[in-house]
Design a protein around this nucleic acid. Structure first.
Lengths: 197, 197
DNA sequence: TGTCTGACAGATATTGAAATCTGTCAGCGA
DNA sequence: TCGCTGACAGATTTCAATATCTGTCAGACA
């Protein structure tokens, strides 16, 4: 093999995603991943101590990729209410798009995430931090009135669970969904805004 | 058999709940139910056209029983904000208690409900109606300011999904749960209240 | 006449033997 | 020396034969 491309965790993750896409979570084996990379499966264990850790790493990659646009939005500096609304709508849209575009792959990643509890927990905490960022910006701008920013960010996250938690994914395609999202966002915005007279 | 107790749907439902409690959903069969009632399984089909319809009926009974206290609360006539808070807390407590008291039975009913989509849909609509009742009471009392009561009731229901939808049941026992519920309820109440100065 | 029974056909679930997979490691080759 | 291989043991999954269940119905029984 002259093209002696070194076997890196990155390449293994790439190959694992491929294998998952082709075979699905239940059928994908470490042997398959090794075969895709043209190495023995023992080599894979040189970089990941177990199949579970490999799966966790794939889950993390996936979640991080999905989170990117939301980080950008939170880091922005427009008026907070618009930004919060935009952030929530983007969060919903990202998930919804994933489900619609490739339901099978989404199911795969969902099952994957179920096993990667710690990774998911960290991801959720990050989401809450992003919301908190926007909320505190709003307080600084004098448009939000919030006792406890951190707790309220968590409450906003909890309140929107229905539209970003995959357990509710099958409801996202329903026709009444958009108007329900509108009502929910309006309610939450009213809950954080300063009283205007 | 001198004690010729007639075979009624009610008795069959009773026996079915017993069988479910003893064997669990996966093991419970129509034959088991018939045996518990000391009749042939053919007789059961005289009252329920299929095993699925029998399961649906059990699910409906269960949901209706769970809903009773909430109906009473919604029908009350105290100040709406307190009543809304009480209603939400009761809704959470009922579910939480079921999970803690008998997780196995809860899992059984959960699986049961997954198959009884129509029944569950009707149950949810009823919940939203109860919330709407309290909200419109609040508007009448001049303490709530709401554009669209029905849509807002739906939004309140959606926002609290995390604490009444069984998909999130495993999170209900966490120690940070109560304070997160407090924050969520506070946020929602602020979202419907009239501005006070 | 109307309810219940019990045998039946097709569908579904169980089981255990065989195949495959995971994770380890001694040793090969560069 | 260091990364990789490939054979291995124990765990897990598959598969097909077997058993059980669902839903029907002709006829018993009251």
């Amino acid at each position: 093999m002259n093209e002696a491309v070194v076997l890196t965790p990155e390449r293994i993750l790439e190959a694992t995603e491929d294998v998952l896409r082709r075979f699905g979570l239940t059928k994908a084996t470490v042997v398959d991943v090794a075969r895709a990379l043209d190495v023995s499966h023992g080599s894979v264990y040189r970089h990941f101590p177990s199949k579970a850790s490999l799966r966790d790493a794939v889950a993390k990659r996936w979640l991080d990729r999905a989170n990117e646009p939301l980080c950008k939005l939170a880091a922005g500096d427009g008026p907070a209410p618009e930004r919060l609304e935009q952030w929530l709508r983007t969060a919903f849209t990202i998930k919804q798009k994933k489900v619609c575009d490739d339901p099978e792959m989404f199911a795969t990643y969902l099952a994957l995430a179920q096993g990667a509890r710690e990774v998911v927990e960290a991801y959720k905490d990050k989401q809450v931090d992003l919301i908190a960022k926007i909320l505190s910006d709003g307080v600084a701008q004098g448009v939000f009135e919030i006792d406890n920013v951190k707790a309220t960010a968590r409450a906003v996250f909890d309140a929107t669970v229905r539209y970003h938690h995959p357990a509710h994914a099958e409801e996202w395609a329903k026709p009444e969904c958009p108007s329900r999202i509108d009502a929910l966002i309006a309610l939450l915005l009213r809950g954080v805004r300063v009283c205007k007279h």
